[in-house]
Amino acid sequence: MIEVQNLTKRYGNLVAINNVSFRVAQGEILGFLGPNGAGKTTTMRIISGYMPPTDGTVRVGDFDVIEDSLKAKRRIGYLPENPPLYNDMTVEGYLDFVADIKHVLGKNKKDKIRLAMERCGITDVNKRLIGNLSKGYRQRIGIAQAIVHDPAVLILDEPTIGLDPKQIIEIRYLIKSLSGDRTVIISTHLLPEVTMTCTRVVIINEGRIVLEESLDRLSERVDGAQILFLKINHANRYNEVNERIQSLPNVSDVRESASGEFIIQTKGGTDIREDLVRVIVQNGWRLLELRPLTHALEEVFLRVISTEGE
């Protein structure tokens, strides 16, 4: 559905994205993941047709976003990083305007606006001025704006940024419910967002794609290793603790992050927690805390990004 080929964008000497290529099939939800400034927004803007790339092509459906820009744009719903809202309009008036410039015609228009408002849960504020609404509502109006013309492709640039945790969860459910046979691209720098909503992930760093994989495969890949966080009261016997833990089977690395806090990395698949606790008890260290440290994907994310940086 979306085909991005060798996309490069330079701002003067600054290379924002460099030779980025990926495809998104129909019905997929692609998570576009990367730290701030990695080139996510630039990529999104190019796909949506807001600005042309320095090099490379983007096709949406059968249309090139530069050559056939009007036809491509009709098939795209786009939520920029900051929702594009007119503060002096009512919610309904605004969506009516958007429907008009997106060529939603005639009788359909009213139904589509009503449907978009229902799906995004903004029906109860439809007569209010956008300028007076809270950030959560504004974000949802932004999403309603992107889906009002029922596009085949939905591009959401950081849809949950600046929302409170409850709203974030609501928006994630909303995005999932929107997918269906739509193709969705979500950019984010938050990992849980990807694991919760997406079917595939593209990780981008410093303008280059560093990983592209389906989420199922990814979790298989990272099932092996595990990182544990351990906090004990060892009365300054750091070296001894370190040695003892290191000597356990299947431990690959031990680091003390702060006084009494250890980050323990394990080798493939095995759970060492029982052994670890036994060692702690035998030595009379007082155990304060023991928990798996990072989400598996987070580890991949950090590893992939940090190796790229070196």
Binding site: Y50, L70, K73, P84, Y86, K102
Partner: peptide
């Protein structure tokens, strides 16, 4: 300033 330029220029209008 309102970021609505992005809406206008990604809409199918010239």
């Amino acid at each position: 300033r309102n970021f609505t330029a992005e809406l206008l220029f990604t809409s199918p209008v010239r």
